[in-house]
Amino acid sequence: MNGFDLAIALFLLGNLIVALLVAARGPTSADRMLMALLFGSTGTGILVLLAQAMHIPALVDVALVLALLAAIGGVAFAKRAWQGDGHD
């Protein structure tokens, strides 16, 4: 089953890279931040899959921390950094 887990992880990584390439030229700052949040959730999925495929259970903890701190970044963006419309 390991090869299959790694295949799914590879698919998610491809997903993430497509989003990254487009996010670099996204229209508004909110869209780019949503991309960062998507990276957080996709990265959590990839880490959990890697933990299973590589037999390193500690990677689940890394996934847990990533899921939490992506949310902190999103809230910091909404509360502090985002002001004015899409031109900044």
Partner: peptide, 23 residues
């Protein structure tokens, strides 16, 4: 991990949508 991600996602979505509406 799932309930944690659910709570985090809901909180962030609420904060961003409210901020967008405020702007």
């Amino acid at each position: 991990i799932w309930p944690l991600a659910l709570a985090a996602s809901a909180g962030v979505s609420y904060a961003i949508a409210r901020r967008a509406d405020r702007l």
